[in-house]
């Protein structure tokens, strides 16, 4: 069994910088944001390391890194991340402020993934961060998966074990330091990773050289993603760190959606 593992990863300001929220005529931003160095979203970076690990253990597998970001900033980030793990880059040029509409970003990402030559959805694993350091709502990955027609979705993933029959056992984080263990028949699936269990790989000159064969051409031909910050933000606040997991069986999707909608109305 081999996979096409597509990792969706945005870039964010280096968290080692002094980050100060400010309001600008274009909307909420960080002070001196244009000058701040960027890094790969740490949540998505874990997903990338897990993807690399899985691909190494599944001969014939391939990792794609899909990123929507300003081209120049993305290039700066890739100078580091491209030394860590092997991947083929698919670059989309656009804002990475986190204030873009997740719906638009998901549409752009899904279109880019659909355009991957030789894409085989029966082998497709869509990886990303469970959450994001990009001030986004954290919904982009799920929406991208839906657009690609992937119904098996997991969030807060800490481990993925592939069975001999190609089935997956997936451990998702729930409250109290526990995990929800799920099984599915295999690809295609969406996995939003928590931290995983792998350390950050050291920089490798060989990996960097290998990646550069595709990174620079991908950056050079990166097309505008057609995503813009069009919303007006009346106010911005940090989300409350609330999570409530309820495990139910045999409930129709429409019922789950109705309950979620009701919860959202009640919460806001």
């Amino acid at each position: 069994m081999s996979y096409q593992i597509v990792v969706c990863a945005g870039i964010v300001p280096d968290p080692l910088q002094t980050l100060e929220p400010v309001s600008t005529p274009q909307g909420p931003a960080l002070k001196n944001e244009a000058m701040l160095p960027a890094v790969l979203d740490p949540w998505a970076a874990h997903a990338l390391y897990e993807a690399n690990h899985l691909a190494k253990n599944m001969p014939g597998s391939k990792v794609y890194l899909v990123s929507l970001a300003p081209k120049a900033k993305l290039q700066q980030v890739l100078m580091t991340i491209a030394q860590k793990v092997s991947f083929e880059l698919i670059a989309l040029d656009g804002p990475s402020t986190g204030f873009t509409d997740s719906h638009d970003v998901a549409a752009a990402l899904a279109a880019a993934i659909e355009a991957i030559p030789g894409l085989d959805k029966s082998r497709l694993l869509l990886f990303g961060g469970w959450e994001s350091a990009a001030r986004a709502a954290g919904a982009t990955l799920s929406m991208t998966g839906e657009r690609l027609g992937i119904r098996e979705q997991f969030q807060g993933v800490d481990s993925l074990t592939v069975g001999s029959d190609g089935s997956f056992e997936i451990r998702e984080r729930v409250e109290g330091g526990k995990h929800l263990v799920s099984q599915c028949s295999g690809a295609p699936a969406v996995l939003g990773w928590a931290t995983g269990n792998l350390p950050e790989p050291p920089n490798s000159p060989q990996v960097g050289m290998q990646n550069m064969r595709t990174v620079m051409p991908a950056l050079q031909k990166a097309k505008p993603a057609g995503v813009a910050v069009t919303q007006q933000y009346a106010s911005v606040a940090l989300p409350k760190q609330q999570r409530s997991t309820r495990i139910v069986r045999d409930v129709a999707a429409a019922e789950v959606a109705r309950e979620l909608a009701q919860w959202i109305r009640g919460a806001h």
Binding site: T80, Q83, P205, G208, M212, M216, P217, Q220
Partner: peptide, 12 residues
């Protein structure tokens, strides 16, 4: 880097 004629690797 964008010229494609040289590679610069930080953190190394």
């Amino acid at each position: 880097m964008m010229s494609g004629a040289a590679q610069i690797w930080p953190g190394m």
